[in-house]
């Protein structure tokens, strides 16, 4: 697959994975409310689509570099992180689950892991993974709901006063210790949590079915 296709071809190709979403469950019209980033990521995951990956790179590459540089990293090292993180996105695409995660959050987590691995010899302590089986059919309603909640969170972030926003940025950049993050961040995470829990319950149900056929 080449990366130098026209914009329309790329768009047509990256639209395709939206249709994997089960139509009969909820009414989903093509692309509606599913962000470009999620569509690209699913094309990378399900079709190993390099053009979609190039779009993810164009979108996240500069943001990632800016993000880690605000955390105090020099430009050369920051680009090394961008390269490693984006390659991880490609190689570990199968782990991306739109029912519980947003592309940006998934990339954020990969970035923090990568940064901690450079600082510490032992690497980051990670929770056990919960794995979907291959034949997993995503629930379109759940994916859409996650997108909506994440959209609300972004709006809330945009509405914060500059000093509050700076504080939250510092917290997620890793510039505050846990003692310093005493107050609630003031971000509306409650509804997102319940959405993620729905995804987890669904997953647990599936795993149970697999174990007890």
């Amino acid at each position: 697959m080449t990366v130098d296709m026209t914009r329309d071809e790329a768009a047509a190709r990256t639209q395709r994975p939206v249709r994997f979403v089960k139509r009969e469950k909820r009414t989903v019209t093509d692309g509606q409310e599913i962000s470009d980033q999620t569509v690209w990521m699913l094309a990378v995951r399900d079709a190993r689509d390099k053009a979609a990956f190039a779009r993810l790179f164009d979108f996240y590459g500069p943001r990632l570099k800016g993000f880690v540089m605000r955390g105090g990293m020099d430009a050369a090292l920051a680009e090394e992180i961008v390269q490693d993180v984006m390659l991880t996105v490609w190689h570990k695409a199968a782990q991306f689950d739109p029912e519980r995660a947003q592309v940006s959050g998934w990339i954020y987590q990969i970035t923090r892991n990568r940064q901690i691995d450079t600082i510490r010899r032992t690497g980051r302590a990670m929770p056990e993974e919960l794995k979907h089986e291959d034949e997993h059919e995503p629930d379109a309603g759940q994916v859409l709901a996650m997108e909506q909640e994440a959209g609300k969170l972004k709006q809330a972030l945009g509405r914060l006063k500059p000093d509050q926003r700076a504080m939250i940025e510092k917290a997620y950049l890793g510039d505050l210790t846990h003692q310093e993050i005493r107050e609630q961040t003031g971000l509306p995470l409650g509804t997102i949590k319940s959405r993620i829990r729905l995804g987890l319950e669904r997953l647990r149900h599936e795993l149970k079915e697999l174990r007890e056929p």
């Binding site: 996240y60 590459g61 500069p62 943001r63 990632l64 570099k65 800016g66 993000f67 540089m69 605000r70 430009a75 920051a78 680009e79 961008v82 519980r100 995660a101 947003q102 592309v103 940006s104 959050g105 998934w106 990339i107 954020y108 987590q109 970035t111 923090r112 929770p127 919960l130 994440a150 969170l153 972004k154 972030l157 945009g158 939250i168 940025e169 997620y172 950049l173 961040t185 971000l187 995470l189 997102i192 949590k193 319940s194 993620i196 829990r197 987890l200 319950e201 647990r204």
Partner: peptide, 26 residues
Amino acid sequence: AACRAGMQAHEIAGGAVLEAGDGADL
């Protein structure tokens, strides 16, 4: 599961911060 959901919510918030920030030219 409750805390896993909470952890993933914070990852989404971290992602929102990452996405909203200024980019740097590559």
